[in-house]
Amino acid sequence: MELAKLPFYAKISCILISLICFGYIFYIGNDIITPVLMAFLFAILLVPIFTFLNTKLKLPRYFAAITCVLLFVAFILGILAFISYEVTDMANDFETIKKNANSFIIDIHKFIKAKFNISIWEQKRYIGNVAKDSVKNGSGTIGSAIMTISDLLLESTIIPIYIFLFLLYKDHFTLFLSKLINKENHSVLKDILSQIKISINNYIISLILEMVIVSVLTSFGLWIIGVKYFILLGLITGILNLIPYIGILIAGVITLLASLTGSGETSIILGILIVNIIVQLIDNNILVPLIINSKVEINAFVSIIGIIVGGASAGISGMFLAIPLLAILKIIFDRIESLEPWGYLLGNDMPKNFAWRIRKTRSQTK
């Protein structure tokens, strides 16, 4: 039975049940599915390089795929090596950080005492009680941290392998999809795959461009106010900015801690907050609409829900995957007649004369 011939309530029920099933499968199997999806996105980004090596330079598929993976790994390791070098250099200022941190904490204690009439002894007692509670739950926290680190190491090892396999068998997967679809729909399938490739490429390149601009702006702002290691902190801010919502908060905390390698003055801390706020205003109001939203036509409401659901299902990786997966769903929905309304729901199309459209639709139905 065709879906289009079912009653409206039956179609809605089938679609909702399918979404719930897919969501549940993703939730219980995110440890397996998430690395595969991450590798799929990066493999799409590397397809042009793979095609160039395989068709233009006549390299065998195995060597072309391995070369792409090695270039990808070298790029990631280069960034990590730079960050590690700068962090090691920053560790030499540990005593300065400790001294300025103590001075800063004393200033906070004095401020709370002056404004809220809470003695320093009471503040330290409260902090001590919180610390004791943390120690009691420390074993679970340490265990969770170890599991997180082990999962991260496993993903960093297996994702390059998945990328290699996706590149190696990309034509095999395409032929498999063509065998699932009737021949009269092959043109639609070809259009869907082509648009998915273009959309994902544009999205990832746009993210990299946004990361570079945010890094440069943050580094320049921190350099102006005299923060040490401004290049490292700008790069960390740009990378963490890729994580929606919480990334910039983590970057702000790291920058504040790093600022203690200098004088630790309150003016520097206020300057850091102002720089982060200005960069975020530029990012949210100029960079994201101009660079990201123009490449991925997903409305803000659906994006926020997708990011929240992705974060609840698979953590930071799920938040990162939410937008490209929604973009893929929109491309598929837009090209299947029975699912076209759902594609419109995900999209960012704002009708300028909605009332006129309603009247026109009603007149046509009469």
Rank of each mutant, 00 (worst) to 15 (best):
L273F: 15
I79G: 05
G78K: 02
R359W: 04
N117T: 11
I200K: 04
I336S: 02
I181M: 15
F176W: 13
N30K: 13
K295E: 13
F173V: 08
V135K: 06
E340G: 00
N285Y: 11
N276W: 02
N276K: 07
E210G: 08
D107H: 07
I20E: 06
G143L: 02
G140R: 05
L257H: 01
V279E: 05
T67D: 03
G238N: 05
K228Q: 13
P244T: 08
I44S: 01
I149G: 03
S18T: 15
V36D: 01
I239D: 04
D171L: 06
L168T: 11
V275R: 02
S13A: 15
R61T: 13
I225A: 09
T365R: 12
V296T: 14
A10N: 08
L41S: 00
I44T: 13
V130E: 04
I292N: 06
K190H: 10
M38A: 08
R357G: 09
F63K: 10
L16S: 12
S144K: 11
G315K: 04
A64N: 09
Y245G: 05
Y85C: 06
N353G: 00
P324G: 06
P341Q: 08
V288M: 01
L3K: 00
T174E: 13
A327P: 01
N353H: 15
A251D: 07
A312M: 14
Y344H: 12
G226P: 02
I112L: 14
R335V: 09
G143R: 03
M38R: 01
A131K: 07
L321S: 04
I305A: 15
S267H: 03
I277Q: 10
G310R: 08
T365Q: 11
K179P: 00
E122N: 14
I298F: 02
A10I: 09
Y203E: 02
I332Q: 07
K295C: 09
K99N: 10
P60S: 10
I246L: 15
G310A: 10
L165I: 13
N54Y: 12
L53R: 05
S103K: 11
G347K: 01
C21H: 00
K295P: 06
I127F: 12
Q364K: 15
I120S: 08
V216H: 01
G138L: 14
L180S: 08
N30Y: 12
L290W: 13
I269P: 00
L325D: 05
I181K: 10
G234H: 07
G29N: 12
K5V: 10
T266A: 14
W223I: 00
A74N: 03
